[in-house]
């Protein structure tokens, strides 16, 4: 198939960026979206132009590196899919495809489609852990049975890949789905109870300090999340936060 691409090009954080047009011919429907980008980059290199910088690594939908806002949607048109798992069979011959970085104040553009998501790491530093040293003397893993339902819900929350699609999608650039997922994972497990109150307070404070917006219950984040993280995690986070605020 032949495609018209409109790609965001920006040389550095301080320079102004713009959409640039590229034409590609002979793209196979079996290619992944990033393989299509590889073809574009090979073409640019061969003609002496600079290739488009974009983050990617595992290319199997789990590392969370790839981002890209494709035709106005985080990770493109297919639900439950990261950009690297999106295939060209989702597009038609002659399509025009707009490719932009994830946009949010807290995610500054580094170059082209590469953004700085270190704010997510800093939120995790503020409480995204259980304080247990590595000793070999922790209790036996089966000493505390955990109801399957809770373990499964914790797992569902923990499948977040930290890509930032929720932030890019939200009109307020809110990170609540991301933060709610981490807080929920620990809130649902007995190991997480000891630090639960501080955790919710600290992570929410850091989230605010990073410049992410608030949640106004639109729910777009859940719709666009490639891992289907549920909105109920935000509700659980709010409950944990409130509990901590009142009882501490």
């Amino acid at each position: 198939m032949n495609l018209n691409l409109k790609v965001w090009r920006q040389n550095s954080p301080d320079e102004k960026g713009q959409m640039v047009d590229y034409q590609l011919e002979g793209i196979s429907e079996h290619m992944s979206f990033l393989e299509m980008m590889d073809v574009l980059n090979q073409k640019l290199i061969n003609s002496g132009e600079r290739p488009v910088a974009f983050d990617h690594d595992c290319r199997e939908g789990i590392c969370g590196s790839c981002s890209m806002f494709i035709n106005g949607e985080a990770h493109g048109p297919v639900k439950g899919t990261t950009t690297c798992q999106l295939h060209m069979r989702s597009f038609k011959d002659g399509d025009t495809i707009f490719i932009e970085p994830f946009r949010a104040n807290a995610f500054p553009v580094i170059k082209d489609l590469v953004i700085d998501r270190s704010a997510f790491d800093r939120i995790q530093h503020s409480g995204g852990y259980i304080s247990v040293n590595t000793s070999g003397n922790t209790q036996d893993a089966n000493a505390t049975p955990i109801p399957k339902e809770n373990a499964d819900l914790a797992m569902d929350a923990a499948t977040c890949i930290g890509c930032g699609a929720c932030v890019a999608t939200c009109k307020n650039s809110s990170a609540m789905l991301f933060v709610g997922a981490k807080i929920s994972q620990y809130a649902l497990l007995p190991q997480g109870q000891v630090e639960a109150k501080d955790r919710a307070q600290n992570m929410v404070a850091q989230m605010d300090a990073e410049g992410f917006g608030n949640c106004t219950n639109t729910g777009a984040c859940e719709v666009e999340c490639p891992k289907g993280i549920s909105l109920s995690n935000i509700a659980r986070m709010n409950r944990e936060f409130l509990d901590g605020s009142i009882t501490k």
Binding site: V132, T138, A151, A154, L189
Partner: peptide, 10 residues
């Protein structure tokens, strides 16, 4: 044991 203590949801 260590991973369960960390909250890994096996």
């Amino acid at each position: 044991d260590q991973c369960v203590a960390q909250g890994v949801p096996f």
